[in-house]
């Protein structure tokens, strides 16, 4: 049975939207692509297209991406294309289809913490913060680890323009599919040294998480042995589970291989 919506509003300010959201049975609409797939009733659907949180711009050291920006808006934005050699452009370009990316929003993708998400994994390897209207700003990893934030509106992503080199790797059987598992890795290039490694693994099939142990290993060395060790540490640290399509054991092994490839790509 499809989604049922009893009433629809398009408020013109965040404040108004937030107030409406407090009503019983009220929910935010993003691009409405994924909401579609659930069988439930929304009493009041709140469309954010007129509240002015769709823009992408720069503030100080940050690229700010409004929650109502579509994945395609973000993909093709100059700031995104230029940052980290267009790393996020690449991450987004592999998400499903052009037609989906033209509708699916940044907020609709980050807020629900989809486990399968390539986008979240990609962001997690950067210095990313999420901003909510009431709850304010928090690190993406804290948001992902914490409870779902209900009855609040995500307003923007803040991506710090740390001079990072990043690499995103995924494994899919069909190219037009969800990832079996995905890995994003980045590091700050400091002369010929790499520091502040970030290693994110998603679609395990749980939502993306950082492997602190792998990061620690890489922060001390990136020779072949260290890379091998980082992969092993990550495999032990993070949980991999089975779903009806792929086994946890398989995901784990593939994640290890992808991690090594990603690190090697970053160090060039």
């Amino acid at each position: 049975m499809p989604l049922k919506i009893l009433d629809y509003v398009r408020p013109s300010s965040l404040e108004q939207a937030y107030d409406l959201l407090q009503e019983d049975g009220a929910e935010i609409l993003g691009g409405t692509t994924y909401a579609r797939l659930s069988d439930r009733t929304i009493k009041l659907a709140i469309d954010l297209q007129n509240v002015g949180i769709g823009a992408i711009y720069e503030v100080g050291d940050y690229i700010v991406v409004g929650a109502m920006a579509t994945l395609a808006n973000m993909q093709f934005h100059d700031l995104i294309m230029k940052y980290a050699d267009g790393y996020l452009y690449d991450v987004i370009s592999y998400i499903w289809s052009v037609q989906l990316r033209n509708v699916a929003t940044v907020g609709g993708t980050v807020v629900p913490k989809w486990g399968f998400s390539d986008f979240i994994t990609g962001l997690l390897a950067l210095d990313t913060e999420v901003e909510f209207y009431k709850a304010g700003k928090m690190k993406l990893e804290d948001y992902l680890k914490g409870p779902m934030i209900k009855k609040d509106i995500m307003t923007a992503l803040y991506i710090k323009k740390t001079p990072r080199k990043a690499s995103f790797k995924f494994m899919r059987n069909s190219e037009y599919d969800f990832s079996v598992v995905n890995v994003a890795v980045s590091a700050v290039k400091d002369g010929d040294k790499f520091t502040d490694w970030r290693v994110a693994v998603g679609a395990r099939p749980g939502v993306a998480a950082l492997s602190y142990k792998a990061m620690e290993v890489l922060n001390s060395s990136v020779d072949d042995e260290a890379i091998e060790k980082a992969a092993e540490e990550m495999k032990n640290e993070l949980k991999f589970a089975s779903d009806f399509r792929w086994s946890g054991e398989y995901r784990k092994e593939v994640a290890g291989a992808l991690l090594k490839r990603a690190v090697k790509e970053v160090i060039g």
Binding site: S174, Y176, D177, F244
Partner: peptide, 11 residues
């Protein structure tokens, strides 16, 4: 079609 994968043109 999300889980039953017919080949896409990239396959």
């Amino acid at each position: 079609f999300m889980y039953y994968k017919v080949p896409s043109r990239l396959d």
